[in-house]
């Protein structure tokens, strides 16, 4: 096994640990921080099931964004939905053929959708990038990191697309062996392909910066009090632990 294979295998383990622990830390932090007041943006659902529907429409359809700005919505949604399809396509590398999931993952439609989603992802990201540069308001609020983030994900998608459409010489069987090897701690060599190595290196960067960047919007949206609270303050008294202490303190 080449030194590069070892480096990548080690890096993947390290990046996974950083990603999982980093995200878990943030999620625990969000969950532990109380929301002392009822602040749903109204009109808001008056039941928990209503909140589930509201949240689902935000997460799946980007409902608020749709109300707000059709351009950002179309590019943003295209990118995120493609990301999901591409994710499904990538499952074939970590799902063993014996698994009950395999028939699903290996379906022609899943694989094809994931492949073409790569193209849609590029269009979505390019749209967002152009907006960031062209619209003066968005340019003003952008930091270097905002551009770099788009460039990073664009590059990941682009190398992925190149591999599935043009340079189709990556040894997929060996790649799967490498991926499963990571899962089972039985490290296997990485196929030698410049595109693949670039693709994976960029993914590693993305994994590491996920918990320390604006990508935290992914867990964040679920914890947003304006979206996840039930509108029932008159019916049910809502009291944060620190506020309850205040009451004990001075009546």
């Amino acid at each position: 096994m080449s030194a590069l294979s070892y480096i990548f295998a080690g890096a993947f383990v390290a990046a996974t640990i950083l990603l999982v622990f980093g995200l878990a830390r943030k999620i625990v932090q969000y969950a532990r921080t109380p929301a002392p007041l009822k602040i749903p943006t109204t009109p808001a659902p008056t039941t928990t099931s209503g909140v589930v529907v509201r949240m689902a429409s935000e997460v799946v359809l980007f409902n608020s964004l749709f109300k707000s700005n059709k351009w950002i919505w179309i590019f943003g949604w295209m990118f995120h939905f493609s990301l999901l399809l591409a994710f499904f396509r990538h499952l074939r590398y970590i799902v063993p053929p014996e698994s009950f999931l395999w028939p699903l993952v290996s379906m022609q439609i899943v694989q094809a959708a994931g492949k073409y989603a790569g193209l849609a992802m590029l269009i979505g990201l390019a749209g967002l990038f152009v907006r960031r540069i062209v619209v003066d308001r968005v340019r003003y609020i952008s930091s270097p990191s905002d551009y770099l983030m788009l460039i990073l994900i664009f590059s990941i998608a682009a190398t992925g697309v190149l591999m599935s459409f043009y340079a189709r010489d990556v040894d997929i069987v060996q790649l799967k062996a490498f991926a499963l090897g990571l899962l089972y701690f039985d490290w296997q060599p990485l196929p030698e392909s410049g595109l693949l190595i670039t693709h994976l290196a960029l993914v590693l960067i993305l994994m590491v910066i996920f918990p320390i960047s604006k990508l935290l919007h992914a867990p964040g949206v679920f914890f947003s009090p304006t979206r996840n609270q039930v509108d029932n303050p008159r019916e049910k008294r809502h009291l944060a632990p620190w506020a309850a202490k205040l009451e004990e303190g001075n009546g």
Binding site: T33, P34, N69, I141, K214, H217, S224, P225
Partner: peptide, 21 residues
């Protein structure tokens, strides 16, 4: 940051999409 979830989550979550601008 420790008392208000809204404050904590909102400071982290903005992606600078520009929808609110």
């Amino acid at each position: 940051l420790g008392k208000y979830r809204s404050f904590r989550v909102y400071l982290d979550s903005c992606v600078k999409c520009g929808a609110c601008t």
